[in-house]
């Protein structure tokens, strides 16, 4: 076999990218085009399938096979394609409206079946393409075009939905954290079974700053924890805080007062979803 020598450019299509200037989607696209050449997969074996929404324009910008399908249904096309030709690497690009509202049923059943697909859910907590209505991940009280006095619906937690559906690979990253995002994409590609990735992605027009707690360099260190297999949950700008289990409740402790050995240790391969569910429920 000859060695594949693909570069980022091989994955860039001839279509002009038409997201808003400053949209978080650009970074996701760039990282995807960066990591794909590293995977050693011929580009004709890579397929991107999307639904409808801003994120779903993604396949047009990738010089691979792709389908821009209909609202919420991308996982169904991806499933049929993968079952027909298991040799393909199939990525599903979806958003919080596409994947969790109109396509919620397909998302949970696809995760349940665990067909070897990679699903990336761009979560910007708003409907962007339809110009700014609250979405299933918008926090209660979100003021939007369709909820001028604040939305009253509780929000979906995409990670908890994935856990509840029995997903076998679940990760969260942020579009601003490009190194981490690239690593998560690589890990998802390597996972056999359905991979589910939630990407915190900023909509600069309709919901700017929704993830700033997790992306702003001033605040993010106090609000995010990098989970690594076998390592204790430590965070903070000075790595001086950690998570300890108090009974069955996680709590924040200072490493000045508590020894590292008492901290919760991340374990990726725990069969039951209990630890994952704990983690999914932690919020800033």
């Amino acid at each position: 076999m000859t060695e594949l020598k693909l570069t980022r450019k091989d994955f860039v299509s001839d279509q002009m990218v038409r997201w808003c200037p400053g949209c978080g989607d650009y970074a996701i696209l760039a990282q995807m085009q960066r990591i794909l050449p590293e995977l050693g997969i011929p580009k004709e074996d890579v397929v991107f399938i999307s639904g409808i929404g801003c994120s779903s324009r993604f396949p047009y910008y990738m010089d691979t096979y792709g389908i821009h399908s209909i609202h919420g249904r991308a996982p169904t096309l991806a499933s049929g394609l993968k079952l027909t030709n298991p040799n393909l690497q199939v990525w599903v690009i979806t958003g919080d409206g596409d994947g969790l509202s109109i396509g919620g049923n397909h998302l949970i059943h696809t995760l349940r079946r665990n067909i070897d697909l990679n699903i990336i859910l761009f979560n910007n907590r708003i409907y962007g393409l339809t110009k700014g209505q609250y979405s299933p991940t918008s926090l209660p009280g979100t003021k939007s075009k369709s909820s001028p006095m604040g939305s009253i619906d509780p929000a979906f937690n995409p990670i908890a939905v994935a856990i509840g559906s029995g997903a076998t690979f679940i990760a969260r990253t942020a579009a601003t954290d490009v190194k981490h995002m690239a690593e998560i994409f690589r890990r998802a590609a390597a996972h056999k079974g359905t991979s589910f990735i939630e990407v915190y992605q900023n909509c600069i027009i309709f919901n700017d700053g929704t993830w700033s707690f997790a992306t702003d360099p001033k605040t993010k260190h106090d609000h995010i924890i990098y989970l690594e297999d076998g390592k204790p949950l430590i965070f903070g700008k000075n790595k001086d805080k950690g998570i300890r289990l108090n009974g069955i409740t996680p709590e924040i402790v200072s490493l000045d007062e508590v020894d590292e050995s008492e901290l919760l240790v991340h374990q990726e391969s725990i069969e039951n979803g209990s630890l994952a569910y704990f983690l999914s429920q932690m919020h800033h």
């Binding site: 389908i67 399908s69 169904t76 499933s79 049929g80 394609l81 993968k82 027909t84 049923n105 397909h106």
Partner: peptide, 26 residues
């Protein structure tokens, strides 16, 4: 023959379109 009992009618035809893209008689 590959049969796929989908989660609903829409997924039934969606999977069929995906299979056709992949070259099957779908």
């Amino acid at each position: 023959v590959r049969t796929f009992q989908a989660e609903d009618e829409i997924a039934g035809i969606g999977s069929t379109i995906g299979a056709a893209f992949g070259g099957a008689m779908a």
